[in-house]
Simulated scan of single mutants.
Amino acid sequence: MTIRVGVIGTNWITESFIEAASEIEDFQLTAVYSRTTDKAKAFADKYKAENIFIDLEEMAKSDTIDAVYIASPNALHAQQAIVFLKNKKHVLTEKAMASNVNEVKQMIAAAKENNVLLMEALKTTFLPNFQVIQENLHKVGEIRRAFVSYCQYSSRYDAYKEGTVLNAFRPELSNGALMDIGVYCLYPMVLLFGKPEEVKANSFLLDSGVDGEGSIILSYPDMDVILMYSKITNSYIPSEIQGEEGNLLVQQFSTPTKVEFIPRKGEVEDLTVSQKTASMYYEAKEFIELIKAGKIESAVNSYDVSLTVMEIMDEVRKQTGVVFPADKQ
C-alpha cells in the first residue's frame, strides 16, 4: 500500500523530509506546491514528483495525493492543514503545529470530523535515543529536576542585525526562538512528565517583536523542569534529568546523539543506540504506518500533547509579551 504524499514548501526542511521519507518503502512523493510555477517545477524535477500546484485548493482536491507534509511558515499551518483535512487528506505539519491553541483545536476538530490523520512533525520523540531515555527513566529514582538546553545561533540573525528581517524573526509568520527552537525542549518534557502545575517564563525580545532567546520553568508537585533556548547564541552544554539515585545525561537533546546513565554510586553506563543520520525518517515512518493502519492520531505525538505544548507556549508568550497577528483573529 503506497502512500502518495504532496509537500508544501520548497525549503531545506522539506528536502530533509523527502530524503528521509524516501527510505520508507511505502512512501511516494507525487506532488509539490509552491507559490510560483517555476519554483514548484524546479523542486518537483529535482525529486521526480509528477505533479505541481500553485493553487492550494486544487492540490487538496486532487486525487494524486493521499497525504500532505506542510513545511510553510507557522502562521500558515492551520489554514493550510484544514483545507486538506476537509478534503480527506492526511496531514503531517511541521512544528510548531500552529500559531496558538485556538488554531490547534480547529485543526484537531477538522481531523476528527473528516476521519483523517493529523500529526505534529516533532521528530525528537520518535528517535531511538529518546526511547532509550523513556526506557531508562526509572534508573534515576525519584526525579527532582530536568534541564534541557537548545541554543543555536541562527544564520539569519546576521542579516537581522544588518537590517534585513527574514522569516525566522517575523511575528506575522508566528516565528521566533520559542516557536522554532524552544518547542524542541518543551515537547519531549510534556510527553515525559505531562502538564505542569505552573509556568514561569522570561525572554529577550527583538525589535521585530519576536523573542531571540528565552527560558522557562515548569513546576510539578515534586520536581521542576528548566528549559533554555536561543536563536541568537550558541550553547554546548548537555541536557540532564536528575534523580535521587542518578542522572541521565543527554547530548544534543533535540536529536539525541549520546545518552548516559550516571548512578549516584557506581560506574557510568553508556545507553546510546544507533539511529539514522536522516533523523526525520522516524517521524515519517510513524506517519505512513498510521495511515496504513487507519489511525487518525499518533499515540506518541498525540492531540493531547500538541494541545498542552501549545497551551504552554501561549502562556509563555503572554508572560513575555510576544504577540502574533494570528492571536487577534
Rank of each mutant, 00 (worst) to 15 (best):
P128N: 00
A96F: 15
S215K: 13
Q79P: 00
S219K: 13
Q275S: 11
P256W: 12
I8S: 03
L127Q: 03
I216W: 06
K89T: 03
L307M: 09
A21I: 07
D224C: 10
E94D: 13
D158M: 11
L218P: 09
M119F: 03
K46P: 05
V305P: 08
R35I: 15
P188W: 14
G176A: 06
L271F: 07
T124W: 04
M107Q: 09
G212Q: 04
E113K: 10
Q275I: 01
Y220G: 12
V140G: 06
I237D: 13
G212M: 06
T36C: 06
F17W: 14
M97W: 04
L248W: 07
R156G: 09
E297H: 00
I241E: 05
P238K: 01
Y281P: 03
M97L: 15
L127R: 09
F17R: 05
D207M: 10
G6H: 00
D327L: 08
K86G: 08
W12P: 00
I237N: 00
A42K: 07
I18E: 04
S62L: 01
E94Y: 13
A78V: 02
K328A: 13
V305A: 05
G214Y: 07
M119R: 00
T10E: 02
D180A: 15
Y184I: 08
V250P: 04
L137F: 14
N115G: 04
Q28N: 09
I24Q: 07
V116H: 01
D26M: 01
N202I: 14
Y236F: 15
F261I: 08
S274T: 08
F204G: 08
V7A: 03
L137W: 13
D327M: 05
A49C: 09
D66Y: 07
